[in-house]
Design a binder for these strands. Structure first.
Lengths: 148, 148
DNA sequence: CATGAAAGGTTCAGGTTGTCAAATATTCAG
DNA sequence: CTGAATATTTGACAACCTGAACCTTTCATG
């Protein structure tokens, strides 16, 4: 039915990997959302809070990293601020920009969430250390290959 | 500082893999959302449509697969139906259930979207066939290890 | 120095996603 | 036939997200 050796199977392999990743994405997403909800955070709020682990960040930067409109971040940060997880301060260098910083409570929440993510334990337990290393290297190469 | 051989590094490895997966998930999510938006579908709509590739499905089943409330699916299917991507028909076996089926247009849309997903090409191009096979096997084991 | 363009945030209107509780219709057990 | 259980829908409400309009601050240019 075909004169070519393995072009179809190579394409199939790629598609198979993509499908598996879709499954992984769904699983990860579900777990993350649950872990956030357990702390009465939404997924978006948890993501913003996680971004601030390394220090304060301007709204604009948050929006870019989450690839959404800045006006969207305003609301999310509003809700985080209301609950005391985050503060907004004007940047002394450029008073147009607001620096968003996680409070102690905010830091604690992300740290706990990070620990609670049992995604690490359950599905990853199937792999031994060597395999996890291989997986890490493959993922690293995929991600550095991407434009971000 | 420690009597044990590699417990810390093993934990670090796991966390590293989890972080990489988070990056992968973010990347995949972004690409999927973009590909859907290019066909003026939302991510949720595209996901439901993709579920119907193998045939009609009751609302309840869609809700379970997407792990959300059935009432949520009602709205999504409403919008898909309005745009002619989907039909709702009562199941003859049990007239309580509504079978949702993709129309021709719906099938075409998912098929195109599936092809457009250049996630397959760009970041995965960094891996040769053997590596992709390894990745596939590792992902398969992770996903079958999970409870779904 | 003044003026106007550009950039960072916010606000507002409008649409989608999501939850929960209540209502409807159908099935099924007794 | 009655009542419990199931599948879906409806309505109220909150969060997320976009796009356009707006305000403030910065900065380049004349």
């Amino acid at each position: 039915m075909s004169n070519e050796p393995v072009p179809v199977s190579a394409d199939d392999l790629t598609r198979e990997v993509v499908d598996l990743m879709a499954g992984l994405v769904a699983l990860f997403h579900r777990e993350y959302e649950e872990a956030a909800a357990a702390r009465s955070l939404t997924g978006a709020q948890a993501k913003v809070l996680a971004l601030l682990r390394r220090g304060p960040m301007p709204m604009r930067h948050i929006a870019q990293t989450m690839s959404c409109e800045p006006s969207n971040i305003t609301g999310i940060v509003d809700r985080l601020e209301t609950r005391g997880f985050v503060t907004r301060e004007a940047d002394p260098q450029d008073r147009r920009v607001k620096l968003v910083a996680a409070t102690e409570a905010g830091q604690a929440a992300t740290e706990e969430l990070r620990k609670t993510l049992n995604f690490a334990r359950e599905p990853l337990a199937a792999l031994d250390e060597a395999e996890r290393t291989t997986l890490r290297d493959l993922l690293q190469r995929i991600l550095t290959g991407a434009n971000l």
